[in-house]
Each structure stands twice: as structure tokens, then as C-alpha cells.
Simulated scan of single mutants.
Amino acid sequence: MAPTPRNQRLLDAARRGDTDGVRTALADGAAVETRDEELRSPLLLAALGDHVDAARVLVDAGADPDAQDSRHDSPWLVTGVTGSVAMLRVLLPAGPDLTLRNRFGGIALIPACERGHVEYVRALLAETAIDVDHVNDLGWTALLEAVILGDGGLAHAETVELLLAHGATPDLPDGDGVTPLAHAERRGFTTLAALLRDAA
């Protein structure tokens, strides 16, 4: 069913990052948890666009940071994809579920490590109790993703250092029994391999 006009105005304002438009739509009675055709909430649309001020208004209005769309994305989960520390800090007071899983069975930490979002990973590990050894449906931890899907460069080296410093198990293997160190060696990532050897 299509959103009502007032709900559509809220969705459009959130997608654009129009903070005043979000406030006006809410004041006019728009539902803070209305959904678009892909089941995305206004807060998810704001998070996808990194519209921090609009998201803050929505959070203050009681928006759910865990509301998932048809792809199992949520406002909280997509911060791991965008790497937005500012959005992370807007959503944290709303009490997001740190165990919420995306369509790959991963938590917010895993895509952030895959992409080498160093400052986001630093903030997430320092400011939450997220599970650093969570295993997704592929059998991969955040550490494995940083090695397997990263480029072996500085950002992924810093990401690996942060994970290890926060208690990531250095030799936790993938579903085939291959460790992060073995993956790093196979890919010729000498810096990552040295970090993993030192942590073993």
C-alpha cells in the first residue's frame, strides 16, 4: 500500500536530508515508522544518505534504529557500510541491537572492516560492546573480511590492528578451516601477515 501524502512527505524529506521538512512532516502527523516501497523507514533513508541532522530529529521522535527493510538493512546496520561515525553516535542513544544481522548474517562491524572504515571501527569498538568475533553466514569474522576482501593497504592494516587490540581471535578460521594468517599469506599481504603472526 502506498504511503499517505503526509507519510510520503516525511520519506522524501528524510531521503533528501531536509531537516526542516522532516520536522514539519512529523508535526503534521506523519508516522515516524512509515515505509517506502522497499520497506525503508525515514531513519534508514536518512542513514543511507548520511543526513545526520535529519536522523537526529527522527531519533528524538522515537524512530527505531533496528527497523529493517526488504534487504534486511537497518539504520544501524548501514552505518557499517557508510562508515559514518557521526551517524553511529546519533543512533547509539536509541539503543540499537548490536547483534542485528544483515542479509549476509553479519553485524555492523563486518562491512566496516571489509571496507577499511578505520575511524568507524575505532569508534564502534571503543564505544560499544559489539562482538568482535561474530561469524557471518559465509563463515567469516570481521578479521577475516578485512583480510579476504581488503586490499592489504594501510586502512586494512589499521583495521586489523584495532580488531586485535580489542580481543579478536587471530587464528579463528573460516568455514573451510583457513585462518586469517593463511589468507594474508596467500594474498601476499606481508603487513597483515606480520600483524597476525605477532598476535598469535
Rank of each mutant, 00 (worst) to 15 (best):
V118L: 00
R16G: 11
V135R: 10
L154R: 15
R16Q: 14
L162W: 00
L10F: 01
T99L: 10
S74T: 09
T4S: 15
H72Y: 14
A129Y: 08
P42C: 03
H134R: 07
A94L: 10
P173Y: 05
V147N: 01
V132T: 07
L154C: 11
G105S: 08
L100K: 07
A165D: 14
G153S: 14
D64N: 15
N102T: 09
D198A: 15
H183D: 12
L154A: 15
D28N: 14
E161S: 14
A61P: 10
L195P: 12
I148P: 10
D69R: 08
R56V: 02
E127C: 04
R9F: 07
A194P: 12
A146D: 06
T159R: 02
D53N: 13
D20M: 06
D69L: 05
D133L: 03
H134C: 10
V121W: 00
I130H: 06
V85M: 04
L172V: 08
R101S: 12
V85D: 02
H183G: 13
A155Q: 12
A86D: 14
D133A: 02
G188H: 08
A47N: 06
I148F: 03
R115E: 11
H183K: 11
L43R: 06
D176W: 14
A61H: 08
D50G: 13
P111K: 02
V118Q: 00
L172T: 11
P75T: 04
A108N: 04
A30L: 02
D137C: 02
A2P: 13
V78H: 05
P93C: 09
L124Q: 10
C113L: 01
H166P: 13
G150Y: 01
A67P: 05
L39P: 07
H134N: 07
L154S: 15
A142Y: 05
R23E: 13
H156C: 00
D66P: 12
W140T: 12
A157L: 11
G80P: 05
